[in-house]
Design a protein around this nucleic acid. Structure first.
Lengths: 110, 110
DNA sequence: TTCAAGGTTCCAAATCTTTGGAACTTCGGC
DNA sequence: GCCGAAGTTCCAAAGATTTGGAACCTTGAA
C-alpha cells in the first residue's frame, strides 16, 4: 500500500502537494487563527495549551482552531509524552507558496 | 465632515489603509472568488456579468461575490452607463501587501 | 414614453462555522 | 494502581455565509 493509514494515535498532517490554497486562505482568514500563525512565526515552537491561553481561549476552542490550522497544512503538531507542540510549516509552505508566510506575518505598515 | 458619505449612486471602495488582511484572506479563501481573482488577473478589466457567466453563476450570485471582493478592497468597480467593469486593485494591493497577489495568482506547481 | 439590458437588492432556505462545557483519553509520576 | 495535567472529542446552540428567484433600479435607444 502507498501511504500508511493514519492510526488513532498518529497526528495527521496533509502532504505538501495535497495542500489547497483556497483552504489555506480561508483558514488564516480568521483573525484568531491569523494571530495564532503570527505568534507561531515569532516563537518557533509552542505548547498547544500555551498558544490558546495566550489568546484567552477555552481549551476546546484552542484545540479546534489548531486542528483547522493543522488540517489546512499550515502547522505541524508533534507529540511528546502527554504534551503537544505546534509549529509553522514554514519551509514547506514557502516552497509550495513562495511569499505566502511573509505576507501573513508582515506587520501593518508604519 | 471628513469623508463624503457614499451617496446612493457612488460605488463604495475602501481606502487602501483601511484594508484588513484577515478579511482579504477570508474573502479570497473561497474557491469561486479565488477563481474570480485569477480571471481578473489574466483579463485586466471585465464586465461584471461576463465574469459571472464565465463561472456559470446566476446574476444575483455573481453580484454577491463581486460585492464581497469589492468590500474587501480586492477589486475596483467602475460604472459606465448601465455597465460595470471590474478589475483587480493590483497596484494598491501590491503596495500594501507585497507578494499577496502573486501568491493568489501563481499556478499549481508543474 | 416605453422598452430591454445590465445590475443590484431583498429575502428566506440551506449550509457551514464557531463556541464552550462536559466527558473522555493518555501519559508520567508517585 | 491512582491521580492530575494536557489535550481531544462530543454535542447542541448560536451565528455567519451562501444560494438563487423575484422584484427592483437605471441608462440608453427607438
Amino acid at each position: 500500500m502507498a501511504t500508511p493509514a493514519p492510526t488513532r494515535d498518529t497526528i495527521h498532517h496533509p502532504q505538501v502537494d495535497a495542500l489547497d490554497l483556497a483552504q489555506i486562505l480561508r483558514t488564516v482568514g480568521d483573525p484568531l487563527r491569523l494571530a495564532m500563525v503570527r505568534t507561531l512565526a515569532a516563537e518557533d515552537e509552542l505548547l498547544c495549551g500555551a498558544l490558546g491561553e495566550r489568546l484567552g481561549l477555552p481549551k476546546s476552542t484552542g484545540s479546534y482552531h489548531l486542528r483547522l490550522l493543522r488540517e489546512a497544512g499550515i502547522t505541524r503538531t508533534r507529540q511528546e509524552g502527554t504534551l503537544r507542540f505546534v509549529s509553522l510549516r514554514r519551509g514547506e509552505l514557502e516552497r509550495r507558496y513562495p511569499g505566502l508566510v511573509d505576507v501573513l506575518v508582515a506587520g501593518e505598515p508604519g
